[in-house]
């Protein structure tokens, strides 16, 4: 059964910021359809009224006092940066233009 077309796989790749060759797109389409076909099993279950669950600890919105404390130095935070300038990360053009 086909759940996802090659066209949709290309769209998901764009959303994922990944690019693939045509052959890879075909392979991903086949594999993803196989896996999504397996996921269909979940539809056997009636989950009406069941709350969605994540981790088992009943904690939510853990708050703390906003107290300034020492953090990574600018130098250390930039120590792995591929490109940097004057204490900032340096990236290529973001907005299109001249």
């Amino acid at each position: 059964m086909s759940h996802i077309s090659e066209e949709q796989v290309r769209h998901v790749a764009t959303l994922s910021r990944l690019e693939f060759s045509d052959a890879e797109i075909q392979e991903f389409s086949r594999e993803m359809n196989q896996i999504l076909d397996y996921f269909v099993k979940l539809n056997e279950l009636d989950t009406e009224g069941v709350p969605p669950g994540s981790h088992p600890l009943k904690t939510s919105n853990v708050l703390r006092e906003d107290i300034p404390r020492e953090s990574l130095s600018n130098e250390l935070a930039l120590s792995n940066a591929p490109d940097k300038e004057e204490g900032f990360f340096k990236v290529p053009q973001i907005l299109p233009g001249d």
Binding site: I4, S16, F28, M32, L42, P52
Partner: peptide, 27 residues
């Protein structure tokens, strides 16, 4: 492969069918 699958199950139009459903079964 996992980034692609994850992006797909969270994407508009499929979120309820896959991700939300999975969270309910997780309960």
């Amino acid at each position: 492969r996992r980034i692609m699958l994850g992006t797909y199950v969270l994407s508009a139009g499929f979120y309820d069918a896959y991700y939300l459903k999975a969270l309910k079964v997780r309960t």
